[in-house]
Design a binder for these strands. Structure first.
Lengths: 236, 236
DNA sequence: ATTTTGAATTTTGCATGCAAAATTTTGTAT
DNA sequence: ATACAAAATTTTGCATGCAAAATTCAAAAT
């Protein structure tokens, strides 16, 4: 097999001076590989169930087996890959049942996030959420599913971030990575879409009122319903 | 996560014939190393902040660097180790602040677990929980902190298991691993200890009544308070 | 005495080699 | 043909080698 030679990496820029100021440290290869592989799995480029051949992937990515194997261990820890001892790795499947479980946990996490955010977010934070929700409503009115999906995701992430709890944020992000593999999520019925936008409004109102319990409860129900819809779509 | 590991397990029996029937496959080394290292960290044998020297640990464990490095990647994904690029690994610290965050998340997860368990546990399951609680009360009456701690942990795990949600169980277990590093948990005041036992009774009653909301709420409060106590102990 | 510079040493990151296990292929007997 | 057995091939798991980066240590300069 061809030897992946030299580190190379950055293209030579002509800015002699700026060159010196640029960050010196390169990212470890195994990190890069992990990220790349994770993207390939989430994007569906590596389909669930695919057997991962180390040599083949090494060739494709231009790295040796060592960093690739390290990456596979990490992705296995994240639940994106199954490691079969002595018989290689396969891309983890994503059943409707597991998706349902993921959403059950996510609804619990986001409830907690909403409760904490209600207590901890600043007025400025809340104003930003409201602005985001306004944009979401515009996308909804314009039937722009793509931008809607983007900002919708951003709103949920923002609320999780406003919990001020890094562990919560981390766990949430990891589970979301697994969920995001079901590309069915965008396929909401018009009815459910309308409902969803209205639920957001209710959650924001509760946050604005600093009503932690209500915000949490509404968020919980909102995410649980989303999960129901997604699970049904995957099952059908 | 969940590395499906070898079947092995049984100790060698002296029965020559049975010998041949023994599972042939050894557990992967990197698995063994991961587990061993995780134990060392949780037990406190590797103190928080300790710099991990690969060569030294390799010598101690009697393995080469390859499986050790794979194990370190996994433990980093679990949050037990920090990987500093190009300057090695260190055992992750555990601040009072982070412990607080962990308990915030755990209280949310166990609330969800209690809610689901209230709906899904069989009567036999509930009977088993009640039996466990009876033993816990005996340990409490006998001022036997060691056995109390053990069965207390078992009760919480049992309720999480009764949620019937494998993802929840997995996430909970991982966070508990991080929390368990604070050995201060056993050091409850008598007052808090009494309280805690009473709270358990309340939770079980709610489960028996199939009152999901109440079970969840009581569990949430119970774990949150435990967290408060532990955090305070670590801070002080 | 303290800082600085630069070599010597250690340590990390990655590629590669090799044996054992698993898989595939080929050949043989029913 | 089908089923089975054995050899050939592939693939995995682990150890090791080597270059680059980081750290340590020592001598020189302020």
């Amino acid at each position: 097999m061809a030897l992946p030679d030299a580190i190379d990496g950055e293209a030579m820029s002509a800015h002699g001076v700026a060159e010196a100021a640029r960050p010196i440290r390169r990212r470890p290869l195994h990190d890069e590989v992990t990220e790349r592989l994770r993207d390939m799995i989430v994007e569906g480029q590596l389909a669930p169930g695919t057997r991962v051949n180390e040599a083949a992937l090494c060739g494709q990515l231009g790295v040796s087996r060592t960093p690739l194997r390290e990456a596979l261990k990490i992705l296995a820890a994240e639940g994106l890959v199954d490691l079969l001892p002595r018989r290689g790795a396969r891309v983890a499947g994503l059943s409707a049942a597991e998706l349902g479980e993921l959403f059950e946990v996510l609804s619990g996490l986001e409830r907690t996030a909403a409760e904490l955010a209600a207590a901890r977010a600043s007025e400025a934070d809340l104003a930003r959420l409201t602005a985001l929700q306004a944009r979401i409503e515009q996308h909804h009115a314009a039937r722009n599913r793509h931008d809607y999906a983007h900002d919708n995701h951003a709103l949920h992430e923002a609320i999780v971030a406003l919990s001020g709890n890094a562990v919560l944020k981390e766990v949430h992000a990891r589970l979301m990575t697994r969920v995001r593999r079901a590309r069915y999520m965008a396929l909401l019925s018009q009815e459910r879409w309308d409902e969803s936008v209205a639920e957001h409004a209710g959650i924001l109102a509760a946050l604005a009122a600093r009503d932690a319990r209500r915000a949490g409860e509404l968020m919980h129900r909102h995410v649980a319903r989303t999960g129901e819809v997604v699970r049904a779509a995957l099952a059908g």
